[in-house]
Structure formats: structure tokens, C-alpha cells
Amino acid sequence: MKTAITSLKACMDSEVDLQFGHCGCFVIYDSTNGSIEFLPNPYRENKEQAGLLAIQLLHGKNVQKIISGDFGQKVKPILDSHKIQMIILSNTNITIRKIIELLQEQSVKTT
């Protein structure tokens, strides 16, 4: 299962970006083989529809969970229709490395 995390920068010690559509970078973690992909957000500077275009990008990569600080009102119904799970963090000081460790622990428990 692929999980996308919105990140401020393309590094493991970066913090989670509060925005979804205008975030700096997407970190895609694949729990089946443990791979991590850093994907710069091409729609970061868009004035409109950044979230909708970002969903198309992530849906094309078969992402099933998205972790972010918040999601816009236009984005939520579309993610629901694609059956992509949204996870909103209240503690945004958490680093990408810590989140991936949590996801790894969980995948070990389930297997």
C-alpha cells in the first residue's frame, strides 16, 4: 500500500507541510517493498486547482493514504470518491522520518 506524505522539503528530516495542494514535496512510502520516493510538487505555484491536480498525480501513482496538515473543501469529496484515506496531523512538528518509522512498525505488526 502506498502512502503519500506532504513535506516542506525533499529530505527525511523535513517537517510535514500544513498544505496539501501547495506543499513543497510529496514523499511516497510503499509498505510492500519499503521504498521511499521524493516527488517535487509541480503544482506548488498554481493559483487555482493545485489540490485537484495533485490528486490526479497521486491517484495515478496508486496512492491509498495521504498524510497532511489539512485538506481543502474541494479536495475532500474527490479523495472520498477515489477511496483515498485522508489523515490529518494535529502535531505538525513531526518529521517525515518519524512518520515513516510509525508506518513501518505498523506494517510489521500486520504481517
Binding site: 479523495l79 484515506q85 485522508m86 489523515i87 496531523l89 512518520i99 505488526k109
Partner: peptide, 19 residues
């Protein structure tokens, strides 16, 4: 954290982030 259940036919029992 807050999270949604994308499939209503299945019940969520664990947090998808921390388990």
C-alpha cells in the same frame, strides 16, 4: 490525528498512522 474511513462497509479498528 484525524482520519476518515474511505470504505463504509468495513469497520476501522486501528489508527492508520500509529496502529
Amino acid at each position: 490525528s484525524h482520519f476518515n474511513n474511505p470504505d463504509r462497509m468495513l469497520q476501522l479498528t486501528n489508527c492508520p498512522l500509529c496502529g
